[in-house]
Design a protein around this nucleic acid. Structure first.
Lengths: 344, 344
DNA sequence: CTGTTAGCGCTTTCAC
DNA sequence: GTGAAAGCGCTAACAG
């Protein structure tokens, strides 16, 4: 590979002139700059990464910490890692992938060796060991997700609480009287997954505030079957379902209701909220407030780069407002015209 | 962070002694080494990554090129990227994630700047632009997948041809007479996905060699419905199905057959081959020859590290033999006792 | 077995 | 507006 010295020689200038011409960090006469650029182009010059890192005290690398638990949704997490990478590239940063047990240890390592300029923490638990680590590291870090103790951290996430409230209000305001939430599997909540709990708590609180009958169930398998049964046990007049669950459970909901002689939205309205899959190709698409990996990662990486380049960043929690995608799975229910229903 | 000079001072030795004591690249008296190690431990010393890279002409970073097409199976690809990362760590390497359009350009960049010591190429098409690029790069590269022109390349993959042959033979030898293959969607084959084509060609060839009636169908949606219909149109006596398709299609097969009054394996035997999902939790689990991300990535990264550390590697194609997992979805069919069947 | 030192290729002061 | 040169922190000859 060509070195900066070769470019300098070819352009008939000094090494520092080449460096400045390429970085633009000080003004260069236009014709010299052009000569330098031409020479660099000609030689296919690209600065040697480690030399640049060493001299500039900056690696232009962001570490992405992605544990991946047993109950993790691979497709969803792939999306977050990929989107982080794409956004990082727009800022001239590459991403180092830290997975599994190295998700924790790699943070320490890449910070201590100054391999990474900053860290994005994905798949955050309420009680996440990476929180304490991040505080001790002296390396800019942004969490995508909200742990229990956010003291001193920068966190970005969809506003799950607002999404839950909006889902409840949407159903209540369109005349629904008995609302069920199909949440995630209990294992996921027990593990400490931060957003599943936040959503659930906000759902219950908002239902109570609106004085609407409600129930919460957790799937025990990979279909909606059991969940639907338990919802009807708790709420015989169930007319609205909120989904904050996995793709497999959501995709089986229509068929499960059909088996009971019910259809969406004629008998039951459905809203999926805080989910990272699309329901557009379901037999019946659902109104959705998506958990948008791109949006979260863009906000997170932008903040991280700001912290790196701008030298620090004040702790803060950034909650992204949910957007509502109407697909016709929610209808207005008029009290005087209760829907026909055959409860089997 | 502590520098090597501080460790040297603390241990009362020279810089080079510290370097050698830690790398083990030359013999050091045990007590001096112990003193160095203790000092390093004490100071929490870790070598500055870019300084080490620059001096050693080695980054200890492997780039992972992962395009991600529209029809790509996110969960499967996440597995390959993650497994590559895990294996790389066992060799002391970190991985840089190159996605999307940067999957190609990032290869050039990370090789030219010597950011990466080597490259793993995932999700390989038959006619993949990264093949020509890899040849021009002067950076050790291993492909996980087999492109059409493998001249000069190192490629690793499951032996899909052997898997197809083994599936056909297993069915033929247990008395099956009419065999159908549910392949991937035509878009996937048209795009050039290398293994889907290899599997299909080998399946047909082996059926012809065994003189068994056969048919191949491609799903048009995300269920097996249409595929099954077309298989029965072509082969009214269908008694064996080979699946080399996506998880959604495979998971709907049982229900689709049930709807026709058929059950697995009583009426139809099923083998899933070259698939990266598990059928263990299906209503009826299938005999499977898995596409094992871990196995492929281990072989690939091991070869790559060998090429980096050993200075080069001869071109080669490494085909991993399929393993057969018996889950009881294939039974022996005796000609004298044709299975009862109600074709609807 | 250990120490001295010349780089690695770049960025960035400092001097002109 | 440009150039000379001092590092960045480490590895690996080279010299004892």
């Amino acid at each position: 590979m060509a070195t900066i010295a070769e470019v300098a020689q070819a352009a008939g200038v000094s090494i520092s002139t080449v460096s400045y011409a390429l970085s633009g960090k000080r003004s260069i006469r236009t014709d010299t700059r052009d000569r330098v650029l031409a020479a660099a182009q000609e030689l296919g010059y690209l600065p040697h990464a480690s030399a640049r890192m060493l001299a500039a005290h900056r690696s232009h690398i962001i570490a992405v910490s992605e544990p991946v638990h047993a109950d993790t949704d691979d497709a969803a997490h792939m999306a977050f890692a990929m989107e982080s990478t794409k956004v990082a590239r727009t800022h001239g940063y590459d991403t180092l992938l830290l997975v599994d047990d190295d998700a924790l240890d790699g943070m320490r390592r890449s910070a201590a060796t100054q391999l990474a300029d900053g860290i994005v923490v994905l798949d955050v638990d309420e009680d996440d060991a990476r929180v304490a680590l991040a505080r001790s590291l002296d390396c800019p870090t942004v969490f995508v997700g909200i742990p229990a103790d956010t003291e001193g951290l920068v966190c970005v996430d969809l506003d799950f609480e607002e999404a839950a409230r909006a889902a409840v209000d949407r159903l209540v305001q369109s005349g629904h009287r008995e609302i069920g939430l199909i949440s995630h599997r209990v294992e996921t909540l027990d593990r400490g997954s931060n957003f599943t709990r936040r959503f659930l708590r906000a759902f219950v609180a908002q239902c109570e505030r609106r004085h609407v009958r409600h129930a919460v169930v957790h799937p025990n398998g990979h279909t909606a079957q059991g969940s639907v049964n338990r919802l009807f046990d708790a709420l015989p007049g169930l007319d609205g379902i909120v989904l904050n669950t996995t793709a497999d459970v959501a995709s089986s909901l229509s068929a499960t209701l059909t088996a009971r002689g019910l259809s969406i939205p004629r008998d039951i309205s459905v809203i999926a909220a805080g989910v990272s899959f699309s329901t557009a190709r379901f037999a019946v698409p659902f109104d959705t407030m998506p958990l948008d990996a791109r949006a979260s990662c863009t906000a997170a990486v932008d903040l991280l780069v700001q912290a790196i380049d701008g030298g620090g960043l004040d702790p803060r929690i950034v909650l992204l407002p949910p957007t509502y995608i109407d697909q016709g799975s929610v209808v207005t229910r008029t009290p005087g015209y209760p829907p026909l229903r055959r409860v089997s």
